[in-house]
Amino acid sequence: MPAEFIHILIALAVVAASVGALGLVMVWVERKVAGHIQRRPGPFEVGPNGLLQPFCDALKLVGKQLFMPNGADPILFWLAPVLSFLPVLVLFLPLPLGDGIMAQNMNLGLLLILAFSGLSVLALLLGGWASNNKYGLLGAARGVAQSVAYEIPLLLAVLAVSFQAGSLNLAEVVKGQGTWPWQWNIMTQPLAFLIYLVSALGETNRAPFDLPEAESELTAGFHTEYSGMGFGLFFLAEYANMAVVCAVATVLFLGGWHGPILPGPLWFVLKVSLLLLLMVFLRWTYPRVRFDQLLNINWKWLLPLAVANLLLTAFFVKFAQYVVVK
């Protein structure tokens, strides 16, 4: 249908623009927060409080020469950054910003997000493999093992919530929650929230789980050889992924757009920003975990807990249905 098609195109354009803006803002926030944690001002020269600094950085990245190492696979090498960035745009489509404010209302929104976020692993693998660099290769291997592992508890934690809500439609999940914090899913699913948060860090390769790009060991890991916008796209994708992960957390656990007094979209943005701030704080506070520890955390702690949580949830949901039906 052409109307549907145009709708999606417009939505994608809006999403692309907002992802770009988001990236710029996040770069500024990250550097500013890091600066203040370390008791220095952070960027403050360009524009008021350094607000224009990300623009300068972006300009610099765009202006840089695109460089490919000797012996790299040209097609895969340049495909990787694009592949890491493009799926992110799709991830924003089913996110409900407010009551009825969403790019595309989908029945299986949650599933779409989970499916497309898996593609970023492929980009990471290609980038590391194609750059003909041993650090890149090691980073890619780490990235794949990590992302595959952390996807499972993430999925299980999310499933527990959708069991409870009885829907994979994100808007429906939000509607199932109330205005006040004690009506949010985090009260009924605190464990799932914690598991989700930890696996989200692993999924987005954020410190302390930033092993694919562990700079003290692998210089820059999978994107060692990327310069200019090749690196810029990876960078942008990372921030966009962070935003998606936080937005999903808000929708599933923190009541989405619900909140007293203030309008819905504002609440949504507020909650997402708080989660993003938490992620930034974690990065600048902790050392990096080791690779075997990272996998141990996943397989020995998160996975069993997530399974137990899911089973418990399923039992209670069925039990409740049984009681109601009776």
Binding site: H36, Q38, R39, P41, W284
Partner: peptide, 21 residues
């Protein structure tokens, strides 16, 4: 211990900067 670490960085986040511009 992880929370304690966050508390430290959180406190310094709010304290004034020590660098000289």
């Amino acid at each position: 211990s992880l929370m304690v670490g966050l508390k430290v960085t959180g406190r310094y986040f709010l304290e004034p900067q020590v660098t000289v511009r």
